[in-house]
Every structure is written in structure tokens, then in C-alpha cells.
């Protein structure tokens, strides 16, 4: 009977079944969710700029909140939407909402209905949801002329002219700025067509995957603020004094990153250990 040759520890480490990694990652996420820990986050200037802008939207002033994401990225962007809505409404500001993502409107309607009910704000007076229109570039260009061009009616089929909040509100000149929560190219369209064409101040809330692409626009002043991913959402919630899904996400981000770092370090150590062993032979 042939004796089974035992593998060295570095060989076992480098050929570990991916399903073990999935299991450990799963545990690194599940345990903090069940445990419900809270970890404070370091606040960054780019998120603070968006927070301070929203905090200045008071006494009937209007901010345009663009819900340009879909359910596949709601994990990162929904907490931002919720925190911004709560903050602006708490200060007496008003919110005009639109969506350039085809799967965004129903999701936006759900969060609006829920938070508006909790904060006792009135549709048509404190907020208006214009709904969705395809072709982002054309829609933003048309919004710069008049919101009524792409959106003659709102999401619920009401004539926009019959809504009290829309009285005297025609284009980007009538809003304090745009906060676009985007999971795709809509972010570029807001920079190119909203900011460069019409000069409206634009801030972005983006997914973690996208964040590094948009920092150059922050440095050039084309964006006045940036909320990057779930960490940005947690920072915003912390500034606004809200304990939401962003804050809930930080513990499992911490544990899962620790697991990933552990595997990166260990596999590198194993790689160099195997190479050293091969050289010795």
C-alpha cells in the first residue's frame, strides 16, 4: 500500500478549497450582523462637505436628489438616501427627486413613503418625486431648461404644475444643488451635463467600486463633495446623528477586511516559504 505523502503547510495553504474561504467570509459577515456592534468611523472632508451642504438646505430651500441607482447597489446607496432625506427634512428643507436608473423609481418610492410617513412631511409640499426618464444625457439637458420638459407629470401621474412645491421651480437655478446617488454612468452625466453645461453644484454618492474614479473631479472642483460607498454612508450618518444601515455595515466591513488581509498575508507567506523550500532542494 502506497504511503500517502503529507503536504507541507504552505502547499495546503496555497491550495485551500475556495469554499472554505467563502464559509469564513460568510461567518465574518454573519456574526457582526447578529451581534449588532457599533464602530465609530473617521470622518473625511469630502463627506463633510456634502453633509454641510445638506445642513444648509433649510426653510423651504430645495435640493435635487437624484436616485440614479438600482436594487443591485442599494446596499451601499440606500443608507445615503435615507440619511440625506432625514437631515434635509429635519431642517425644514425640501427635496426634489428624479431617477435616471430604470430600476430606481419603485425603490425610491418605497423609501420616500416610509421616511415621509415617519417624519410627517407632505407630498407636493415638502417633496416631489419626478420619476424616471430614459437617456440620462438628454434628460439632464432638458432638466436644465425646465424640469417640466422631461417630466410634465410626476411619478404618480400628477401634473407637475399642480404641485405647490413646484411653483416657481423651473430648472437648476431654482435648486441649491444636486446630490446624485449613482451606481453607473449617470454620475458622469451629472458632471458633464449638470455641472459643466449648467454650472449647478454637484455632489456624488457612489458605490465603493466607483469611488476612486471620481476623486479627480473633487480635486478639480467639479464636485463639491463625495460619499464613497458604505463607509461614506456611515460617516454621513455619524455626522447627522443617525444610526442607520451605514453604521450597521461598518462592523462586518471591519471583520471581513481583517479576514481578507489575513488570507492575503498568509498566502504570500506560504508562497515565499514554498519558493525558499524549492531553492533548498
Amino acid at each position: 500500500m502506497a504511503e500517502r505523502k503529507s503536504k507541507a503547510w504552505y502547499d495546503r495553504m496555497l491550495s485551500v478549497d475556495r469554499r472554505w474561504i467563502y464559509l469564513i467570509m460568510g461567518l465574518a459577515v454573519v456574526v457582526p450582523v447578529i451581534w449588532e456592534m457599533y464602530i465609530p468611523v473617521t470622518e473625511s472632508s469630502e463627506v463633510r462637505d456634502v453633509y454641510e451642504f445638506s445642513d444648509d438646505v433649510t426653510d423651504g430651500e430645495i435640493v435635487l436628489l437624484a436616485i440614479d441607482y438600482d436594487p443591485s447597489t442599494m446596499a451601499e446607496l440606500h443608507p445615503m438616501t435615507e440619511a440625506i432625506l432625514r437631515q434635509v427634512w429635519r431642517n425644514g428643507g425640501r427635496v426634489l427627486l428624479s431617477s435616471l436608473s430604470q430600476f430606481g423609481p419603485a425603490m425610491a418610492d418605497e423609501i420616500l413613503t416610509r421616511i415621509a410617513g415617519e417624519m410627517d412631511v407632505e407630498y407636493g409640499v415638502d417633496y416631489v418625486f419626478l420619476g424616471y426618464k430614459p437617456y440620462p444625457a438628454i434628460t439632464i439637458l432638458a432638466m436644465g431648461a425646465d424640469f417640466r420638459v422631461p417630466f410634465p407629470t410626476d411619478y404618480y401621474g400628477n401634473n407637475v404644475d399642480e404641485l405647490p412645491m413646484m411653483e416657481g421651480v423651473h430648472n437648476f437655478d431654482d435648486v441649491e444643488g444636486v446630490i446624485a446617488l449613482a451606481s453607473g454612468t449617470a454620475a458622469d452625466y451629472w458632471i458633464t451635463y449638470g455641472n459643466a453645461k449648467y454650472g449647478v453644484p454637484v455632489a456624488l454618492g457612489v458605490t465603493g467600486v466607483m469611488a476612486s474614479d471620481y476623486y479627480p473631479y473633487l480635486q478639480s472642483g467639479q464636485l463639491f463633495g463625495l460619499i464613497p460607498g458604505i463607509k461614506g454612508a456611515a460617516e454621513y450618518e455619524q455626522m447627522a446623528g443617525i444610526r442607520g444601515e451605514g453604521a450597521r455595515g461598518i462592523p462586518y466591513q471591519t471583520t471581513s477586511h481583517a479576514v481578507i488581509l489575513f488570507f492575503i498575508v498568509m498566502t504570500n507567506v506560504a508562497f515565499f516559504a514554498r519558493r525558499a523550500a524549492q531553492r533548498r532542494r
Partner: peptide, 16 residues
Amino acid sequence: GLTVMGRVALLGQRVS
């Protein structure tokens, strides 16, 4: 790093 954060957030939201 930011991509990992995004992907973990998707998993975390479903687990939550």
C-alpha cells in the same frame, strides 16, 4: 480595497 468594500456591503445587506 474599495471594490472589496462594495462587494462585502452587498453580502452584508442580504445577511442583514
